[in-house]
Design a protein around this nucleic acid. Structure first.
Length: 670
RNA sequence: GACCCCGUAGCUCAAUCGGAUAGAGCGCCAGCCUUCUAAGCUGGAUGUUGUCGGUUCAAGUCCGACCGGGGUCGCCA
């Protein structure tokens, strides 16, 4: 609602200014600091004042008088030094909010049919258990996908499986060379439920082993990786077993958090179905990558790193080059193909990106992933038979979101540069690196985990999680802890529930706490993880928001029990309760409830899922405030009771929807 | 060294293209449960937005310099 009205207001202003003053200005709208000042304000007259060389207040006055009425806006006022403040028609807003809440999704579902959006997230190396940092990735991606869908977009979620990378190779080395196991025995182990935990430890051990045997390590890694890439020998067999089993573990972990995927895009298929060969040929043809014959990169194919050339800088950069600093060269160049012929992740990612945009002229084969954790439809790429019932995954995407942590910004730039080198500047532009900062541990938390801190680490604000060192909070452990803590609370509060109800309620609370915790930080805030904060159910948390919904449901239940008759609330009646200073408190709740579309839009424009969390919290807060001021069911005035009840249900609908965008369910009771 | 990110209340973080009096949560203090769930609410204290300069009607936000912290620059991803 809020977005609709402000959009109309903005358009009306733009149109008016264009017609009257012949100026094309971007119309900035903001939320006035106080509700008494209206619901939307524009400082556009300050800009106009500069252009027209007249006083801003005077221009504001003029526009106030001449602007044609905007539906939903009751009046316009000049405020401060020249702000134009819009006051909404509260009765009309009430009416519209009612229908919006009932109809559910936004009307602009034509987007659904137009272009396809791919959100790629999670993409954990399939060689160990998922940790808290991986969960941040998945939660951000999942929330972004849900938010885009809420706005009517056609979204497909993919999880990239790097099953032919160095990390898998390391665990294969661990099994075959350190533990001296046979493929059969690894296969047996892979059926154990905690196989990912086993690999977590094995990976740390292998890394240590390889670090201690440097000369042996390089050859071992190279040979193993090559065998895995080419799909031959015990190495490839074990690699496949490990990767598939770990992926199954990851899917199970993420399913606990309500996170699912449409397609698992496996790197092995990029190789086996010759996606890479094709991309490689194109990269060579266009000269995007070059073969190095001397120096330390001899025998590799590299992509020369260009300094950014945009606008004015291009000139100076060229001059610098012309002056001949050429000699130092190549330190930034990125190796795409190693001297032993294996491809780096970046190379494979270029091929993958090309496919996403439909620029490769090839498609994968697809088959259903056999072990979907909840029996849902998950597809996987395969180099075997193509299942004709597979959805059209190969349809080109218009926009692609790649959820990848901030440390990989350089690599993402290389991928984009590769696309541009192949003449796909538009694809590079529409390939969005949804970057986010890492989850680290506070030194205290790391110490609690039994990690020995070096003196300088102890002084730092946080310690980086490291799969190679085996340092990190495993996702399943954390969810277990959250569920246990929530269950304790639920058992205390709701002895009347069956154990199953208690468990599922505790689960919803645990998921709410965790997902909200990871979403309340903006993307480029480093989260210094601490159990105390993450396990909190009070204040700015998921359970706080869930609790507001639970309260509303309690009111509804009690209302039905009491058999209170519901009278209809007309816009005029609503207007009466919302008017004036006394009505402001109620109006703020209604306005908050009607602003979901605005929050969703902001989250998409800014690519910032945290906005959704912020919105949900503020709405819950507004409701709790309202809840303590007004006792709804004991309200004597029949009209007012019906109005308050209607407002409450409106908050419920919108809050449930907002929580849903974050993958958080509100239980009936908690 | 080059490039990128960050620096806001005791702590953790917000602040919509540059907009009106910089906001939340936690923690602390004082209150509120025979009435719809206290995982809640109310009130109180805490700020030279790292420093200096510049641009602007308007700067936490943009520009420059400096200080402090983090990251990237691997034949790892």
């Amino acid at each position: 609602m809020y977005l609709e009205i402000t959009t109309r207001f903005r358009d009306a202003l733009a149109k008016h200014i264009r017609a009257k003053y012949h100026l094309e200005l971007p119309i900035v709208l903001e939320r006035p600091p106080k509700i008494e000042m209206g619901e939307a304000a524009s400082p556009v007259c300050f800009e106009l004042a500069k252009r027209l060389k007249r006083a801003p207040r005077q221009i504001a006055q003029e526009i106030q008088n001449a602007l044609p009425p905007v539906p939903g806006v009751a009046k316009l006022e000049v405020a401060g030094a020249g702000y134009l403040n819009a006051y909404f028609d509260r009765g009309a807003f009430w009416e519209a909010a009612q229908t919006e809440a009932k109809s559910g999704d936004r009307k602009d579902s034509q987007n659904r049919l137009s272009h396809k959006i791919i959100v790629e997230h999670t993409s954990i190396n399939p060689n160990k258990a998922a940790h808290i940092g991986h969960v941040r990735n998945a939660v951000l991606g999942d929330t972004m996908a849900r938010t885009l869908r809420q706005a009517g977009r056609n979204v497909q979620v993919q999880n990239y499986i790097d099953n032919t990378g160095v990390q898998v190779a390391d665990v294969v080395i661990g099994f075959l060379h350190m533990e001296k196991r046979t493929p059969v025995s690894v296969k047996m182990m892979a059926m154990e439920p905690r196989f990912d935990y086993y690999c977590w430890d094995l990976y740390a051990k292998t890394t240590q082993f390889l670090a201690e045997n440097k000369e042996q390590a390089a050859k071992l890694r190279g040979d193993t990786l090559k065998a895995i890439e080419e799909g031959r020998g015990e190495e490839a067999e074990v690699g496949q077993v490990v990767a598939d089993a770990i992926v199954t573990c990851h899917l199970r972990t993420m399913a606990r958090l309500g996170i699912f995927y449409q397609l698992l895009a496996r790197e092995s298929e990029i190789l086996h179905l010759h996606f890479w060969d094709l991309a490689f040929a194109k990269l060579k043809e266009t000269g995007t990558i070059q073969f190095v014959t001397s120096g330390k990169m001899a025998g590799c194919w590299v992509m020369p790193w260009k300094e950014e050339k945009s606008g004015v800088n291009a000139e100076s950069a060229d001059i610098k080059n012309a002056e001949g600093t050429e000699e130092e060269e190549n330190t930034q160049d990125k190796i795409i193909v190693r001297s032993n012929g294996t491809v780096t992740y970046v190379g494979k990612d270029i091929a993958y990106q090309l496919w996403k945009f439909g620029l490769l002229g090839k498609d994968f084969h697809y088959s259903k992933w056999p072990k979907a954790p909840e029996g849902e439809d998950v597809w996987s790429t395969t180099s075997g038979e193509n299942d004709p019932h597979a959805p059209p995954f190969g349809a080109p995407a218009k926009t692609v979101y790649n959820v990848i942590d901030a440390r990989q910004a350089y690599l993402q730039d290389v991928v984009a540069q590769g696309l541009r080198g192949l003449g796909h500047a538009e694809a590079a532009e529409n390939s969005i690196h949804l970057s986010y900062e890492i989850v680290a541990l506070t030194p205290r938390c790391a110490a609690e985990m039994g990690y020995e801190l070096s003196p300088e680490e102890a002084k730092k604000p946080y310690v980086e999680v490291s799969g190679r060192k085996g340092l990190g909070v495993k996702a399943d452990d954390l969810i277990d802890q959250l569920e246990a803590a929530a269950l304790g609370e639920v058992q205390q509060r709701h002895a009347e529930m069956t154990p199953e109800e208690q468990k599922s309620t505790a689960h919803a609370i645990a998921v709410g706490a965790l997902r909200f915790f990871l979403l309340k930080f903006t993307r480029n805030a480093i989260i210094a993880f601490d159990f105390k904060d993450a396990l909190s159910f009070e204040g700015e948390t998921g359970p706080y928001c869930q609790y507001a919904v639970v309260r509303i449901r309690g009111i509804r239940r009690k209302g039905v029990e009491a058999g209170a008759a519901r009278v209809a609330v007309t816009p005029e009646t609503a207007q009466k309760f919302l008017a004036g200073t006394e009505g402001n408190g109620l109006w703020e709740v209604l306005l908050a409830a009607g602003s979901l579309d605005y929050a969703v839009d902001a989250a998409i424009v800014a690519q910032e899922p945290a906005f959704v969390a912020k919105y949900a919290f503020q709405l819950a807060q507004a409701f709790n405030n309202f809840y303590h001021k007004h006792h709804i069911l004991s309200e004597a005035d029949e009209q007012k009771r019906a109005f308050l009840l209607g407002l409450t249900e409106l908050v419920e609908a919108q809050l449930v929807r907002a929580l849903n965008l974050m993958g958080i369910d509100a239980p009936e009771k908690m």
